[in-house]
Design a protein around this nucleic acid. Sequence first.
DNA 1: CGTAGAAATGGTAGCGCAATCATTTCAGGG
DNA 2: CCCTGAAATGATTGCGCTACCATTTCTACG
Lengths: 340, 340
Amino acid sequence: MSPAKVPAERTATLKDVAEHAGVSPMTVSRALNKPETVSDALRARIDAAIDALGYVQNHVAGALASAGSNVIPVIVPSLSNTVFVEIVAGIQEVAQAAGYQLMLGNTEYDLEREYTAVSTFLGWSPPGMIIAGMRHLDRTRHLLKRWGKPVVETMEFGAQPIDMNVGLSHYKAGEAMAEHLVARGYRQIVFVGCRLDADYRAAQRYKGMDRVLAKHGLARREALSYEEPSNPARGGDALMEVLSMKPKADAIFFANDDLAVGAILRAQREGIAVPKRIAIAGFNGLPFASLVTPALTTIMSPRHEIGRIAAQQLIERISGRTPTKRRVDVSFEMQVREST
Amino acid sequence: MSPAKVPAERTATLKDVAEHAGVSPMTVSRALNKPETVSDALRARIDAAIDALGYVQNHVAGALASAGSNVIPVIVPSLSNTVFVEIVAGIQEVAQAAGYQLMLGNTEYDLEREYTAVSTFLGWSPPGMIIAGMRHLDRTRHLLKRWGKPVVETMEFGAQPIDMNVGLSHYKAGEAMAEHLVARGYRQIVFVGCRLDADYRAAQRYKGMDRVLAKHGLARREALSYEEPSNPARGGDALMEVLSMKPKADAIFFANDDLAVGAILRAQREGIAVPKRIAIAGFNGLPFASLVTPALTTIMSPRHEIGRIAAQQLIERISGRTPTKRRVDVSFEMQVREST
DNA sequence: CGTAGAAATGGTAGCGCAATCATTTCAGGG
DNA sequence: CCCTGAAATGATTGCGCTACCATTTCTACG
């Protein structure tokens, strides 16, 4: 049943190490956690004992005794969207280097599940938490506020964070792209996304766009939202639908680059002139965006950077230092290319 | 400093809940962990007490007392490669549904770091572990074997797993693609990858290809390996380099689809005829692969599925059931399209 | 209505470690 | 060589929970 060939000898404890090295358990504990407070001689003996016994520290016991673990929970709405993965990767990079472990929670865009995840994670006595988004159940906000430890909300930049916040304004991103399209002369602009009810950040980009269209007195339309998750093929199909259903449309602002690149690849295959017949714009700044023909106009969001900064801010606070800012607005960058 | 507005009242413990509900702590523990063993009446009182006190279970203490947590460590070599992320997502899906938490370790393709990660994770008394790849330090293998709990090695299918293994044979995948290219009449085939020393799975695909070329008495060449991590732009550049440096080459087998799609996009932009001037093949089956023109011939690897199965096997074993098989060879699928 | 056996509940002990405070050892000055 | 303060080491205690076993309550049946 178990792969062990070796008889399941009781695993060595810190006490065993202490006896083997002829010191007190407390000294071993210190040698492990604050090596500089133990004399070289003892440290050497202890290290030898650890090797001899194959001792591995029991972090569970450590966390209980010291009422705090080095585990940082990270809660995201999805792992199938590269955007969140890149943020997790950024967090991981910084956190692991600082000696923290990441615990991963996936809410599938469900705020109830988010609450459950937060609640469960609190039971691991983490020193802080990172959570995507700023929309949570009241219960969730209260729980985290009452908890009182550092929390970073990521992805979007918004008002009244639970504690800290690192992200960008999706509303402004939508505005920026709309201004660009309007300046380029496009007048019939359609917004296309997937699951805009759940992906409220994409919806915010739509709202930003809508405001700009209104400001310029241009035709405003409902956003086109598909039920399936974003994927490139969907982007291509959406392009064809827009062309046939709304032939007057002269530009599409896609909720993300997966859709937009999919649309460009489809246009190419179908021989549709982009941007002449219809312009295409995206959001995120995927690597493929600059390589397709025509190259995609998009907005680069610094996902990895958001993750890194979030982790840095959190660790800063965990270590008792005051972070530079509570709220960080990482800026996005318009990348105007051939598709508009 | 802390976001708490509320005075940091001592958090409620299970004992507090017990007193509030007028039962013993043991009963509360049972109500939480095996609700069916507690009478409805008591369970209701206990739930009420939990709500009233805002109690959240301390998993650290639970794990210590029961000498086992519900945390499953997952160790991968990289998070910037979508392949591993998709596996993690598959694992997550199954594990979270079964009530397990994921702890994430990233080795950056460094076997020493892998050892450290394994060792650290063991300290969280996990019920099992999932680790990418089958190449580890001897120390790592010994540690895991001696540990004696379920371990799944993923990504590749190979001989002599530490315990269980779910993956595919990259060697065979390389062979399959080479056979296809040879059958199509290509004779001067180049393998292009990035960091093939670290990414030994890609190197295995090369070896599989090389064997087939040898078998057919065709020209064999060293694989072309770049130092930077895989990215689409590199694929495009590699294509141009091969065309100018090895003008006789009539096909390129890229280590992955990021490179291959990048090459196709570049070919299109430069007006290079694919597959006429040179054929292009990839590996992984990214969504974009079928959408570019010409559509990319590639091999679909069931990443998400690998993750799901790995998690299922692990949980099966954790629950004491014997899994169907110790070793699972998930098969890959040739997707022959326009680029070859 | 009594009794056996099952189901529900409780008391006790200890998981492995670090916080805390007590004690010992050391370095350096008089 | 003693004394003082700092550095190094040790003894004790408890973190919050669950395993284990003991006890009580319920159910079914003669």
